[in-house]
């Protein structure tokens, strides 16, 4: 147990952060260079004004017609994304651990709020899972990877809650929490979760094409 803890708290944690930051940077730079070579128009048409205009409409709940057609999915998605980012980044225990390790600290949210947010994330994951299985237009497109990614996202939140509330076996849950969280961070640049880094770019590009070239809205 101790050995696993040391690995999870030490080298694995460092590796996860390095893979997240380095991997994201690597993917972005590589795609950027490839775009320069093969899709130079991307740079020519990219426009700050129309890019941000599109991002704005897609980052506001119900800002696009597609979102308005699916209110449940829209609410679940926005809650999920906000909670899945805010809860772990501003959880007091995480802030403290980072402060203790590297003397870097930022604001934190009350534990109760983080608790509620984790529940929201888990509930949203269940919603996504049911939708992926039951809705033909989603299940048709789904492969084992999509289910794996969903499980990977849910795991740290389930085990985090488990560990926080000290349910039976919470020591094991704590270790799994650390390991799954690290796996999640490390896999962001290399799986479909890479939409985290590419979304702003592809959306801004489509916004630029629609706005600057086509004089039209894309939401």
């Amino acid at each position: 147990m101790h050995t696993l803890y040391y690995l999870a708290a030490g080298p694995f944690a460092i590796a996860a952060f390095v893979l997240l930051a380095g991997g994201s940077l690597f993917r972005l730079v590589r795609m950027g260079l490839l775009a320069r070579k093969k899709d130079p128009a991307v740079f020519d048409y990219m426009s700050a004004r129309y890019g941000f205009r599109s991002l704005f409409h897609w980052l506001v709940p119900f800002g696009s017609r597609g979102m308005r057609l699916h209110p449940a999915l829209t609410i679940a998605s926005f809650l999920f994304h906000v909670c899945a980012i805010v809860a772990p980044v501003f959880l007091y225990a995480h802030v403290l651990l980072i402060d203790e390790s590297w003397n870097i600290a930022w604001v934190h949210i009350p534990d109760g709020a983080a608790d509620a947010m984790s529940l929201v994330v888990i509930a949203a994951c269940v919603f996504f899972l049911v939708r992926r299985m039951k809705s033909p237009e989603v299940s048709y497109l789904s492969t084992w990877r999509d289910y794996a990614v969903l499980a990977l996202v849910a795991a740290p939140f389930v085990t985090g809650l488990w560990s926080f509330h000290q349910f039976p076996g919470f020591r094991y849950a704590g270790i799994i929490h650390m390991l799954s969280g690290e796996l999640l961070l490390a896999s962001i640049p290399f799986t479909r979760l890479s939409h985290m880094i590419f979304f702003p770019i592809t959306r801004a590009y489509m916004g630029s094409e629609f706005g600057a070239v086509r004089n039209a809205r894309d939401w």
Partner: peptide
């Protein structure tokens, strides 16, 4: 093809919203 196709293929979350 290059960055566009690669990025699109990698990031699509299979959410099905394009059906509409």
């Amino acid at each position: 093809t290059g960055a566009r196709l690669k990025t699109y293929a990698a990031m699509c979350a299979r959410c099905g919203m394009c059906s509409d």
